[in-house]
């Protein structure tokens, strides 16, 4: 498998991480080496093996439908970059 420069650009955009043009080749190379390691997996026959998502074979616990949280806007917004009238501000969203 070969990770192309286009692949790196595509995943960088999906992940919303700017990658400077000059770094793309290097990053593609690094990822290439890591995926070389990962490729070892592909040789293993896993037919019939159930994927394991959790360490314990337990099911979801559910909480009762009750309000347990109160308004903490002031504290929460104290660490926000830009706030006005109780709203978080971001560059204009275009739908």
């Amino acid at each position: 498998m070969l990770l192309s420069v286009e692949d790196v650009q595509r995943i960088a955009t999906l992940a919303r991480i700017a990658v400077p043009e000059r770094d793309i080749d290097r990053i593609a190379g690094e990822l290439q080496a890591i995926f070389g390691l990962i490729e070892q997996m592909q040789a293993v026959d896993t037919r019939g093996v159930e994927p394991m998502a959790h360490a314990q074979d337990v099911v979801l616990r559910l909480r009762p439908d009750a309000v347990s949280e109160s308004d903490r806007r002031e504290q929460f917004q104290a660490v926000a970059a830009s706030v006005e009238a109780g709203l978080y501000l971001v560059p204009k969203v275009i739908e």
Binding site: I11, L31, M41, V44, T46, V49, E50, P51, M52, A53
Partner: peptide, 24 residues
């Protein structure tokens, strides 16, 4: 970037699912 790649369209089964099976 690695994680985004292995979950992205067309790679999920080969990487993520295979890794979960190996985890088993």
């Amino acid at each position: 970037l690695m994680g985004t790649y292995v979950l992205s369209h067309g790679y999920y089964d080969a990487y993520y699912l295979q890794a979960q099976k190996i985890r088993r």
